[in-house]
């Protein structure tokens, strides 16, 4: 594995390196989905669509320096697009997902263009309003969006060549996993390209960046639109996995927990987004299990998961201020330093 990684990392060609990474991640996903039970396959599918969203968001916030509290609403745009196209218009899956990405991109252009005129807390406030306002449309136009009841779609059917007993959960994990791999490929290329460098330049110093000939507003809008497209894909995949698009899935809490997840995972890092997705999927069921392991009254134990979640968050931020991936990096570099001199000493 080390040589494979070394070859992937050693290559100077970004495209080839991204492809290698994607093939490797795909192999891991494939092996994992074969080895897992039905529920874990579902968790894998959930993690995959969360990753698609988080990868875009971590690039937006970590690389281009914009905070969005509205990505839950962008997911809703993608989710409802897929639900309407598959449920009402009987579109096949892939075109419906592409349409979700396209529509969310358009919404991203509109929101992003407004967003680049705003800074810091004002940007957060504007996207916050978006996150609160958009799901309310579903209640306003119940005829189209089905109100709180939501829109239900039929589960995707695994192709017949996979066999009659192919588990639905695994098929969902594959679909969502493939979507996540596409995002991984695009984003991994992007952050290492000129575009990625221009994101960082704008984040670090807008005046310096504009003196270098970068059009700051355009770069920021591009970052927002890219992350919106990722959120649209993630939302569309959510509909495929849950077979449901309902306002309850896109409450403000979702937008906040997305932001939490990228910070907790490691801001600006795609691997951090993987950790973040794992946190989003696994932490709620862990906190539930912990809450129920104490024999408390229903009123207390029902609200315990939130309290535990907060506690985990505070602890994690104290112990790893730069996220889980930052923690891993610190451990590795410490081990590396310790090993370094010894290796030199051993050399003749």
């Amino acid at each position: 594995m080390n040589t494979v990684l070394a070859r992937i990392q050693g290559s100077h060609n970004t495209l080839a390196r991204s492809l290698g990474l994607v093939v490797f991640a795909g192999a891991v996903l494939f092996i994992a989905s074969e080895a897992l039970g039905a529920y874990n396959e579902l968790q894998l599918a959930n993690g995959a669509y969360y990753f698609a969203v988080l990868a875009g968001l971590t690039v937006l916030t970590g690389l281009s320096g914009q905070i969005s509290l509205g990505h839950g609403a962008l997911m809703a745009v993608g989710a409802y697009t897929v639900a309407l196209l598959i449920g009402n218009e009987q579109w096949p899956l892939v075109p419906a997902l592409l349409a979700a990405v396209a529509l969310t991109t358009l919404v991203g252009i509109a929101v992003g263009a407004a967003a680049t005129r705003l800074r810091g807390p004002y940007l957060a406030g504007a996207t916050l309003a978006f996150a609160i306002g958009l799901p309310a449309l579903a209640d306003k136009y119940t005829g189209t969006f089905g109100g709180e009841n939501g829109l239900v779609v039929n589960p995707p059917t695994p192709p017949s060549w996979l066999g009659a007993n192919f588990p639905l959960e695994r098929w969902e994990a594959w679909i969502a996993g493939l979507g996540a791999l596409v995002v991984l490929f695009v984003m991994n290329n992007l952050v290492r390209s000129g575009v990625g460098r221009s994101f960082r330049a704008v984040r670090d110093d807008e005046i310096a960046a504009s003196l270098c000939g970068l059009r700051v507003a355009r770069v920021q809008t591009l970052a927002f639109v890219l992350s919106a497209a990722c959120a649209g894909l993630g939302g569309g995949l959510l509909t495929v996995v849950l077979q449901l698009a309902s306002p309850g899935a896109f409450q403000l809490e979702l937008s906040l927990s997305l932001l939490t997840a990228i910070v907790l995972g490691g801001l600006g890092s795609l691997l951090g987004a993987v950790w973040g997705a794992a946190v989003l999927v696994l932490l709620p069921s862990w906190t539930n299990d912990i809450a129920h392991s104490f024999s408390l009254s229903t009123g207390v134990s029902a609200n315990m998961p939130l309290a535990i979640y907060g506690l985990v968050l505070i602890t994690a931020m104290l112990v790893w201020p730069s996220g889980i991936q930052g923690g891993v990096r610190a451990v590795v570099s410490r081990v590396g330093k310790r090993r370094g001199p010894r290796a030199k000493g051993a050399a003749p």
Binding site: N2, L5, Q9, F24, V28, A32, A35, L36, N40, Q43, L44, S269, L271, V274, W275, A278, Q325, V328, R329, V331, V332, S333
Partner: peptide, 16 residues
């Protein structure tokens, strides 16, 4: 660090 991160993800996956 990235390699270790990937390894960590695999460990989590196997754990699941």
């Amino acid at each position: 660090a990235r390699a270790a991160g990937i390894a960590g993800v695999i460990v989590v996956a196997i754990g699941i």
